[in-house]
Amino acid sequence: MQREADLASHSAEEPTRRDFIVIAAQAFAGVGAALALWPFIHQMNPDASTQALASTEVDLSPIKEGQAITVVWRGKPVFIRNRTPEEIKKAVDVKLSDLSDGSARNDDLPERAPATDANRTKKGHENWIILVGICTHLGCIPKGQGLSDARGDFGGWFCPCHGSHYDTAGRIRKGPAPRNLEVPPYAFTSDTKIKIG
């Protein structure tokens, strides 16, 4: 006890001489220990092989008017349909006030953009409608891609799980789904090729 008291009082008498180097050393060591934490955290972020699949390129030239294909992007189905002029007109003619969900849900546009057909497609390529094929209700994949598939009351897509009807611009018109089908971020890299993501 006495010895410990001696040691303690000794340190109290000369704090600056002993504490500075001790504090400096501990601070230096501590910073390194903190930095060493980063690799342990970062290793859980998407790795290089996943990043490589963050974008998908699609060649649209084989898709004829009226046809549709489904591709995979980031593990999700994406509907790509080459709409007929009738389908385009039907989508353009819809009044915004008739829509259950008035937001464009387009990842390339701000939150509040209205759900006009123009905001659901790219300028100059209005015949192409590209949508994430996951029903916004509970996640089923709606029918409508195949030529003989049911398309629902609005000619777009129909989700068989709980009866949601989407129109030719992929907007929810009837049924329990709360939001329009999401339009993923994409761009035309040439007249016939797109890059999604």
């Binding site: 040691l7 340190s11 001489r17 400096a24 050393a25 230096f28 060591a29 390194g32």
Partner: peptide, 21 residues
């Protein structure tokens, strides 16, 4: 490089602490 500096600093700190003993 970092560890060399840290080791030197910690070594000095250890000596300071043990000087009384």
């Amino acid at each position: 490089f970092y560890l060399i500096i840290t080791a030197v600093l910690l070594g000095l700190a250890k000596r300071r602490i043990w000087r009384e003993v």
